[in-house]
């Protein structure tokens, strides 16, 4: 029997469409308009065509920031996802420990981005910071204001501290929703701990992991506040990510046209990578026999 289709249901989506139009579509259209013009303020614009796009695509500064962003997002995902799964697996499933663990996990997520940056900026200082002093005392040459590797390590550890909890909470929610029957069947079959994880827990975590990876990828790819507060994009340009570069260009230099062109290219990269992630994780293999 044919499935009934009722397109009147689309009217229910209309409020969301209006809201998104005002919060996202109209600002994005304005950015597109800016990207083909030049302005010196006073709402006066001069047509520039595709000049700013050509300038952005040829810019070494843009390419370097893009590579930094991709490396940062890759490292963040490579650390936070396995660590989040491991912590979620280690958390208790019943008793008073559950509430304690959930509150501890939620705490970093409640701290505003700029406060996290300030905490780690102070924490890592070699004159007054606990981390900086301890590392200096045990003979490790650590100074995030002067050494790019130390700056990168600080920004990555800070992000892991701030956002692994999100992966943990999502994975924990996925784990507690697995019915006991699966574990009972695994016990009857004499399955090892690894087999239970590989064939029961990991497949059941697929959807929450998809959300976690998408959220963490998009968020890390658009990171601004924390590295800006800790390193200001330095030393040199070593932690200047795309968003930091964009703000420098748009607000610091008031180059609205080039900044708008860079924003559009940046937006298209985020959109394409998110779509690829989403498609690979939700659609590939789902239509094949036995594929899930």
């Amino acid at each position: 029997m044919d499935k009934p289709w009722n397109n009147k249901a689309w009217f229910l989506v209309l409020p969301v469409v209006v809201l998104v139009a005002f919060s996202a579509v109209i600002p994005l259209m304005t950015v597109v308009n800016y990207s083909v013009q030049d302005t010196f303020g006073q709402n006066v614009f001069f047509w520039a065509g595709t000049d700013w796009y050509e300038q952005t695509l040829a810019s070494e500064r843009f390419r370097d920031a893009l590579v930094r962003n991709l490396v940062f997002s890759f490292l963040i995902l490579a650390i936070e996802v396995p660590l989040g799964i491991a912590v979620a697996l280690a958390m208790p499933r019943k008793g008073w420990g559950v509430s304690v663990c959930l509150v501890l996990m939620a705490l970093p997520l409640l701290i505003p981005w700029n406060v996290v940056g300030t905490i780690w900026q102070v924490f890592g200082r070699i004159d007054i910071g606990l981390l900086g002093r301890v590392l200096a005392d045990i003979g490790i040459d650590y100074n995030y204001t002067q050494e790019p590797i130390a700056a990168w390590a600080t920004v990555i550890v800070m992000d892991v501290w701030h956002w692994t909890s999100l992966v943990v909470l999502l994975c924990y929610a996925g784990l507690v929703s697995i019915p006991d029957a699966y574990y009972q069947a695994a016990r009857i079959d004499g399955a090892s701990r690894w087999a239970v994880f590989r064939y029961i827990q990991l497949p059941k975590l697929k959807h929450v992991l998809l959300i976690a990876i998408l959220l963490r990828f998009m968020d890390s790819f658009m990171i601004y506040t924390e590295p800006f507060v800790v390193t200001g994009g330095g030393p040199g340009n070593s932690t200047t990510f795309l968003s930091i570069d964009l703000v420098k260009m748009a607000i610091g230099q008031f180059d609205l046209g080039p900044a708008a062109a860079m924003s559009i290219v940046y937006f298209l990269i985020v959109l394409a990578l998110s779509y690829v992630f989403y498609t690979v994780m939700t659609k590939t293999g789902a239509d094949r026999p036995g594929g899930r």
């Binding site: 109209i26 259209m29 304005t30 597109v32 308009n33 800016y34 083909v36 013009q37 302005t39 709402n43 614009f45 047509w47």
Partner: peptide, 14 residues
């Protein structure tokens, strides 16, 4: 809507 800095090419695009 002058703040949106419309031009004919971008209007045609949208």
């Amino acid at each position: 809507l002058s703040w949106m800095a419309w031009t004919w090419p971008t209007a045609i695009f949208f």
